[in-house]
Design a binder for these strands. Sequence first.
DNA 1: CATGAATGAGTGTTCATTCAT
DNA 2: AATGAATGAACACTCATTCAT
Lengths: 211, 211, 211, 211
Amino acid sequence: MTLKSSKEQDAGRRKQLMDIAVQLFAQKGYPNTKISDIVAAAGVAQGTFYWYFKSKQEIVIQLVADGHARLLQVIGQGYRKQSGTVDDMVKSSTKLMKDLLEFAESNRHLMALMFIEGSGGDEAIRSAISETRIAIEQAFRRNIERAVELKMLPDHIDFALRSSILTSLVEGTISRWLFGAGHDMSHKPALPADVVAAELARFEFFGLLGS
Amino acid sequence: MTLKSSKEQDAGRRKQLMDIAVQLFAQKGYPNTKISDIVAAAGVAQGTFYWYFKSKQEIVIQLVADGHARLLQVIGQGYRKQSGTVDDMVKSSTKLMKDLLEFAESNRHLMALMFIEGSGGDEAIRSAISETRIAIEQAFRRNIERAVELKMLPDHIDFALRSSILTSLVEGTISRWLFGAGHDMSHKPALPADVVAAELARFEFFGLLGS
Amino acid sequence: MTLKSSKEQDAGRRKQLMDIAVQLFAQKGYPNTKISDIVAAAGVAQGTFYWYFKSKQEIVIQLVADGHARLLQVIGQGYRKQSGTVDDMVKSSTKLMKDLLEFAESNRHLMALMFIEGSGGDEAIRSAISETRIAIEQAFRRNIERAVELKMLPDHIDFALRSSILTSLVEGTISRWLFGAGHDMSHKPALPADVVAAELARFEFFGLLGS
Amino acid sequence: MTLKSSKEQDAGRRKQLMDIAVQLFAQKGYPNTKISDIVAAAGVAQGTFYWYFKSKQEIVIQLVADGHARLLQVIGQGYRKQSGTVDDMVKSSTKLMKDLLEFAESNRHLMALMFIEGSGGDEAIRSAISETRIAIEQAFRRNIERAVELKMLPDHIDFALRSSILTSLVEGTISRWLFGAGHDMSHKPALPADVVAAELARFEFFGLLGS
DNA sequence: CATGAATGAGTGTTCATTCAT
DNA sequence: AATGAATGAACACTCATTCAT
């Protein structure tokens, strides 16, 4: 009942519930996770949940929105400012991939929620997740466009297709690295982030035949 | 009163229900699709569903199993038998990609069910889908191993990682081609299958810098 | 397709279904036995059941009615015609008990249906079974009244109470002999019918202290 | 806003539901009683039932377990400690019978559930009831064994058979006294408990011919 | 802030019964 | 006589949400 307690308690509880929720959503899926599961794990009463969140839907949307912001920030840091050699390009791409992989690794549950969770939720949830995916793809696209603009990449191909391919590469590889092909939450990454990042960057520019 | 009627009626009803079900599962998601939606669309009574399927779960599993088989068959046809030039490699990969894209295009709902539908179903469903994803990745891996064996590809990279990257590329691109980044069922492919296939194959071997 | 087949086939099928039905009703209980269980055991189609019986209820009622008739006939044969010594009385009672026990033993399923099956069925069934129980009690009562009339038994006690007690004795002992205290259909009688009959008759007239 | 309200409300609701449930189960039979009947009678919503009981099955099992305990306690109080005359024996047996009859009379619905309700429930329910019947028979058996041990009863007869006969006598007579031969819930006992008890005890030791 | 009892609409599944063939 | 697909009313149970305390 100290002065600060109310506000902090508040934030703490809310965060606790969100942490528990992502975890459960990731493990059991959103529709299979009951509010009662969340409050049981938090050790509070059913009604308490509704003091912090308007509804079950609200907590996912909040979770996705938070994740969206943090993820986009990581990607945004990789935006190319000036021209450079092919080697520069590969280096900075490797850096971006590594940042992404590390972010993903320390946010497994969020990743699962955003990239594995499918159509179980209602429209609002689906569209919140969609926005994130679209934003990611656009970020990659801007980077490609910038590189073409700087003459670092050939320009004979459709930008949309290329960024779609690139995003698939990155998103899918991260997902498989974290959860395996089977989307198994108990799967553990077999290789360190930097190895995967280096290989991803190499593949990005040179493909399977790349030296 | 024809001889075939009973048997065919049977198979017909079953197929009709499965067709309606994939469609609804793809559009609204598995948990949001009620048995009553399915039977209403089929114009039969609620109980009729249970004459053909033991449960709601059974129909998805059946759907996934069917899709698994057909999909693997398409991929299996792309298995490399003998060595060849780089050009041969790109050509046959282009062929495989095109087959896959065409299969996917004529099985949109199935694709959505298997690659977008996420954690809505229970464990049994999830694992049926997992098996398919794993089988696909293994099929790609076998192809890569074979190519290395035939000295068509360099062998300095981890097979698991490479096939994971390649599968991500293909699966993600197909998904984005069919449904857009936002997993939108009403999205229509913007490019013809052969254009995407050619670009995929080129990217596969040469990456972004590829000629 | 012989001339007799239709009629005989008919009676045979009907009997077969009834035999299977008592058995299943006895084992799983009336409400837990599905028509589909019965027809599956008979190896015929669902619809066939309804050619022989109007409804599920009808078959039980039929079963109970048949049992009622046969059971009452056994009891009726024990009706006392003339006076005699105490020994005569015990002897003829022993005979009746033995007949009853033997009838019960060769009609286990029927016994279970009539004496264990409870309120699961609807009113019509309950009252069919009730009629049988009441008839049995009345048969015993007539025998007691007759014995009193013939001065073979003292008459200072309420007839209704005495016959109620006697019927309880007999019905309960038969039931426990056949199925054990736990109403277990797989229970097997531990003693031969005549031993139990003798003891029952002795108890009937002399109680626990009887020589 | 009293201190006790929450806890007592809880216990109260639970008890209320159980009281309503026995009554309905006794009147209409377990399978014919819908959860909606119970909650309607209690004036609460459907979901409330499931706050207190896991399932429909659980409430019967609870009911039977409670009844089992209370019934066995009544019988247990009749356990013979020391030897005595025949008259003592009859007196204490009369006392036990009276206690049982009175217990039964003030627990009509429970009696109906346990001794009339038959095979309607599933295996778990049946076995809970069986346990009770078996426990009752064993309690009677212990009493007989004790009496033989104390030389109060002759020992030339199988204990199992004798206790089976005795239990049948008691259980059946109680059932007929309360519900008539027809298991009719609206039947009212025609004689006072002590009269029936006296006659039961007399019959127990002397049979029909008993002075 | 927190509790937890109460709500009630919603949904998967069962099963006796019907009927065209 | 027999089939078996089709029917549809019935029912147990779930769970997000509310609200008095």
